[in-house]
Design a protein around this nucleic acid. Structure first.
Lengths: 207, 207
DNA sequence: GTCTATAAGTAGATAGAC
DNA sequence: GTCTATCTACTTATAGAC
């Protein structure tokens, strides 16, 4: 959320809010205009078309994700620290932007071509390093045997999934849990780190 | 996918395919008609409106999920077996219906009101039982201390998330992994069960 | 840059023939 | 039941005044 009060930023803030919560297909230019306190014509004056405006927001989001990876992989560390860093960084991102998981998953499903070569390259680089690190730890017997891609999927699932289920869980869960679901999300960092550590640490190292 | 070759079933099969992959907002009645090999007017003759047709498909999906829960919770078993049953049943469901996770998460986000009292009740009942079972095992020291809701989220994330990322992972992952991503999904049952078991089993029981 | 008014296209829904 | 043709409403996008 940019603070500069220019019209362009007002539009971007409004578009971010609407696109993230509703997705491309269900978003309405009128709603974005209302949210920005301007009219539809001005949206087109600044961004030409709905799709171009959406692309701008989508790029922002992907860049935010890539920036997280950059901060995590810029220095060397052992795998467990790397895992903890990933959990900490991304749960912080998600706590501030809870609609992000569903938004990204959706748009990647519906428009995988938006995943441009550039961004793809940025993410793939870190991913490759991460998968290699996992394989090395497995080979060295330092963590329980697991295919690196499986561990990646497990970690991402533990981090991301709860943030995609907020309306779901807050509806179906027992009344006693509903008021504390927000607290639950806050606790995810600690819980996920512990869960992963317990799952990958070999028994031999415990005894 | 119903086999009866009645027009109604042809429509339902087409609608299921289109709604599951595109979601309500992006789905087009024309596309459903084409897919069913009939024309738009006939869709309205059979189901009155797009929304009513969607509701029918959505209900089917929720009922499928509820049926899974029913099969799992109909008999008594220890928590670890229950967890294994949940993993087995739902990964089987997802292997046959890979668009289900994103479809459900989306529609629950966009139209939580569709989660009718009836379905809500069906699911909440089993959920309550499951959460209680977890708490009892924690209290008895049989599994590592964890808030039941966190363990639920962890299990669901491990099961569901990979199936929501199929286009994503198959694009960004290294070439060497792309051809085997299908195999990876097949392996999820075994991997997830092992991962959960390792994570929740107390050290004291290992030594 | 910002607005009002309107064009152009699309999608859901209906009328009516067969 | 099934079709073609059409209506109506909505949505994106543009023209043109200020």
């Amino acid at each position: 959320m940019v603070k500069d009060n220019t019209t362009e930023n007002q539009i971007l803030n409004a578009a971010r809010k609407v696109f993230l919560t509703k997705g491309l297909a269900a978003a309405r230019m009128q709603e974005i205009a209302d949210e920005a306190g301007i009219n539809k014509a001005l949206l087109h004056y600044y961004f030409r078309s709905k799709e171009k405006l959406f692309d701008r927001i989508f790029s922002e989001v992907i860049e935010k994700i890539a920036a997280g990876l950059q901060s995590i992989f810029k220095r060397e560390m052992v795998l467990l620290d790397r895992l903890h860093a990933i959990v900490d960084v991304y749960i912080d991102v998600l706590l501030e932007n809870r609609y992000l998981p569903l938004f990204v998953l959706n748009e990647l499903n519906h428009h995988p071509e938006r995943f441009s070569v550039l961004v793809k390259k940025h993410i793939a680089k870190h991913l490759r390093k991460f998968l290699t690190e996992i394989q090395q730890e497995v080979d060295a017997g330092k963590i329980n045997p697991i295919h690196p891609l499986h561990l990646l999927l497990n970690v991402l699932g533990l981090i991301i999934f709860p943030f995609a289920t907020i309306p779901f869980v807050s509806r179906i869960s027992d009344k006693q849990y509903r008021p504390i679901f927000d607290t639950i999300l806050q606790e995810r960092k600690q819980v996920v780190k512990q869960f992963i550590e317990d799952a990958i640490t070999p028994k031999s190292q415990i005894i």
